[in-house]
Design a protein around this nucleic acid. Structure first.
Length: 221
DNA sequence: GCCACCGGTGGC
DNA sequence: GCCACCGGTGGC
C-alpha cells in the first residue's frame, strides 16, 4: 500500500496464463517482474527463462529499465510502470541467487492457498517428465542417470518465495478453529490483514529489497 | 490409479 | 522458529 521507495529490483514476468487446458505442468504464476534499480518501477519479464536468468545474477547485475529494451524497445524510466501494487495481484518475494534451471528441465513453483501451513512448493520436472520434490530426490535421480552430463545438485534449489501479505500462511500455533469459525474469534495480531483476506482472491503480495518476485494470477477455479 | 495439493514434523 | 522432506488423500 505505502509505495515504499526502494531500489529493489523485482523481477516478474508475465506468463501467459492462457487457459490452456492441456495437462502440462503449470506454474501458478501469472507474471514475473523486476524492479528497476533506478526508478523502482516494476517491469514484466517476458519469459520465465529470462526471469530465471536475471534472478540468478541480480546481485552482480542490477536490473534497469534499459535492460528491458532487449524485449521492450525504447523502454526507459520515464515510461509508466508495467504493474503496480494496486491489490489486483498477489505477490511473492523471490529468493536471490537461485540457479538457473538446467536446460530441458523445468522448475515449477506452486503457490498454495491462503491459510495453509506453507506458502508454496517448488518442484523440478526432469526431461523425462518425472517430478522431483526435494534435493534428496534430485540427488537420487542424478545418481540413477549418469548419462546426464555435468549436472550437480548445486544447480537446483527448492527455496520458495515469501508472501508479502502477512498471515498468508497460518501460524503454527494458531488455533485450528480460526479457519472454520472466525465469526466470534478475536484475531491475535494484524487484524487488517484479515480484512484484506475478505476481498478473496485478489489480495496480493509484493516483492521488495532487491529481490525478484512473482505475481500470482487471481485464482480462478 | 494417479497426482496435485496440503499437513505435519524432525532437524537445524 | 523455520524449512526441507515426505506421507496422506481427495478429486480427477
Amino acid at each position: 500500500m505505502e509505495g515504499k521507495p526502494n531500489r529493489s529490483d523485482a523481477i516478474g514476468n508475465k506468463t501467459s496464463l492462457s487457459k490452456k487446458t492441456s495437462k502440462r505442468v503449470w506454474d501458478s504464476i501469472a507474471a514475473y517482474t523486476v524492479q528497476c534499480e533506478k526508478c523502482s518501477k516494476w517491469r514484466f519479464i517476458p519469459t520465465k527463462e529470462k526471469y530465471e536468468e536475471i534472478r540468478e545474477r541480480l546481485a552482480e547485475q542490477p536490473f534497469f529499465c534499459e535492460t528491458a529494451r532487449e524485449w521492450h524497445l525504447d523502454l526507459s524510466c520515464d515510461d509508466e510502470p508495467d504493474v503496480v501494487r494496486d491489490g489486483s495481484w498477489r505477490w511473492a518475494i523471490d529468493k536471490p541467487s537461485i540457479p538457473q534451471c538446467p536446460p530441458g528441465w523445468q522448475r515449477i513453483l506452486r503457490i498454495r492457498a491462503k491459510g495453509g501451513t506453507k506458502f508454496a512448493d517448488v518442484y523440478y520436472v526432469t526431461p523425462s517428465s518425472k517430478r522431483l520434490r526435494s534435493m534428496m530426490e534430485v540427488q537420487s535421480y542424478l545418481n540413477e542417470h549418469p548419462e546426464l552430463p555435468g549436472l550437480t545438485a548445486s544447480q537446483f534449489s527448492f527455496q520458495i518465495p515469501s508472501p508479502l501479505e502477512e498471515n498468508y500462511v497460518r501460524k503454527r500455533h494458531a488455533r485450528s478453529v480460526t479457519l472454520h469459525d472466525m465469526s466470534d474469534t478475536v484475531m491475535p495480531v494484524n487484524p487488517t490483514s484479515w480484512v484484506v483476506s475478505d476481498q478473496k482472491r485478489d489480495s496480493h503480495l509484493v516483492g521488495e529489497e532487491g529481490s525478484t518476485s512473482y505475481v500470482e494470477a487471481p485464482a480462478q477455479s
